[in-house]
Design a binder for these strands. Structure first.
Lengths: 112, 112
DNA sequence: TTAATTTATCGTAATATTACGATTGATATG
DNA sequence: CATATCAATCGTAATATTACGATAAATTAA
């Protein structure tokens, strides 16, 4: 046990869960916000900024990279990361769509 | 280790991460969608619907309940769950605000 | 009251996540 | 080339999550 039973759910549900998991850590939220706010974002800067170890930041960056949410280009000895705007637009729409589903419910189910 | 260093991050970041974590499992996504789609949603129905054990569904329901995302009212031997619309509007805005932050970035940081 | 039904909780096993020191690999600089 | 710098990866410890059987608690029905 301890393993999510992915096969029980449809692709939309699994994809949204995976995306939500990427946002389910404050360090990754902070990294993404930092990427949006600055013109260059390198691992070393984030280590200073966030107060986590270099290996930990690198691990978080990889998770975001694996989902295509960010990408990095090597510039000398450093790596410059940035958001993938196109990908984020997709992600935004997936969440928006989900929230719309939740908002559009029959009025007769109200218990709070 | 293995414990998230909450103290390093601000409230907005921590709150969003906690909310994202609630959505970071396809069963909880499915439960929420089911709650939105039907007029009554009880644990037993979900067990049939999702194919997870009763104890597992109950555990997921509790997580959603603890964040105030859903609430349940006892009706005889069953419990009827529903979405907390007001709370979901807050949540939707928190995500919307976050996505807006990400979209509003300087054009000169493009590497993908 | 007794039995049946439904949900919550407990206990626990399997797996995943988080964090970091140490090391490696790659690139720049002396 | 030797050294310094930076990021990725490895290995591993601590903790969290997921899942479920068993049990408990609450309510209804007989």
């Amino acid at each position: 046990m301890g393993v999510t039973k992915t096969a029980l759910f449809d692709m939309e549900q699994n994809e949204l869960a995976v995306l939500a998991k990427a946002l389910a850590h404050p360090a990754r939220i902070a990294i993404l916000q930092h990427l949006a706010a600055t013109t260059s974002c390198i691992n070393g800067t984030l280590v200073q900024e966030l107060g986590l170890a270099q290996a930990t930041i690198s691990q978080h960056l990889r998770e975001l990279k694996e989902l295509g949410l960010i990408c990095g280009s090597i510039e000398g000895t450093t790596v410059n990361y940035c958001l993938d705007s196109k990908r984020w637009e997709e992600v935004r729409l997936q969440f928006q769509n989900f929230f719309a589903q939740l908002a559009d419910h029959p009025d007769d189910n109200l218990c709070c």
